[in-house]
Design a protein around this nucleic acid. Sequence first.
DNA 1: AATACAATAGTCAAAGATGGTCAGTATGCT
DNA 2: AGCATACTGACCATCTTTGACTATTGTATT
Lengths: 159, 159
Amino acid sequence: MRLSDAIEQFIKTMLTQDEQEIELKRNELAEYFNCAPSQINYVLATRFTPDHGYLIESRRGGGGYIRIFRMEQDTSEQLLYMLHERIGDSVDALCASHLIQQLEERELATAAEAALMLAAIGPQALSLPLPPDMKDALRARILKSMLLEIARRGREPKL
Amino acid sequence: MRLSDAIEQFIKTMLTQDEQEIELKRNELAEYFNCAPSQINYVLATRFTPDHGYLIESRRGGGGYIRIFRMEQDTSEQLLYMLHERIGDSVDALCASHLIQQLEERELATAAEAALMLAAIGPQALSLPLPPDMKDALRARILKSMLLEIARRGREPKL
DNA sequence: AATACAATAGTCAAAGATGGTCAGTATGCT
DNA sequence: AGCATACTGACCATCTTTGACTATTGTATT
């Protein structure tokens, strides 16, 4: 079996054991598998991307870590993921506001959160002198970044 | 757990227990945590700055001390005003994250909202090929736009 | 008063501890 | 062979911890 596959399995096993989130040390894992630390990055980059349903968070320095979150495939995270796809590399303001509205209607975000998101991608926020297509690209990134954050947290928009 | 985090927690626990101000001895604290005294300075410098909402006052020599004040904000509007002043036309990522953290600690935003805001101004969101100063300017606008939203709802029912 | 000494706290640069990137190399599949 | 995937290592970025040196203040001694 390929090393990458073995590491992938190892991580997925850790994740399926009731936990939805795991934390690991890159160097420890690399040593365990007797490989270069960067191999871990390779596995994460090729098998644990948002498109695969995972989110990564890490920190360097003493006490550093890598955290891997699994998105719920069945429930609304899937929807978020689809929205994520739909946005692509560029969205205009109208489309973005519609998406945010949908989030609120489906109770994936509170009204307050939806308002915040609108504020983040509104004309005020993006009023720098940039070409319009650049703004759409920027809006897409901001929105996707926020959607991923919503996907990361569990399922309680709590009103 | 990281030493720095432990010390940070220790201090914050002291501060949240009704007191708005605490006094401590650098050397005592260092001995308690079994670390170099300058470690205390590191924690203060990275986690108790004005951007984090704290003020430090100290004295050397016999009977020396370090006092930590949690800044008092009269109303949320005043805080937001200060943030506006602080942000201006440009903020770097670190400063912005400190300010958002402060919003959460002071319960002007929920943890979920703070996370959303962080996502909106994070490196992922602003990963377009732009000069750094342009990113800082953009971050300032996005953040201010979101703060205005928070200020606006601040006059309505509580969280 | 002036001086010396002890008790504190501050600064800063170096070392340590992690993780990230990327270009180049190896391996395996068609 | 040619292409895609896997792997490695050198170099980079970031965060933490420490220690040597410095600065300030109170107290004891002259």
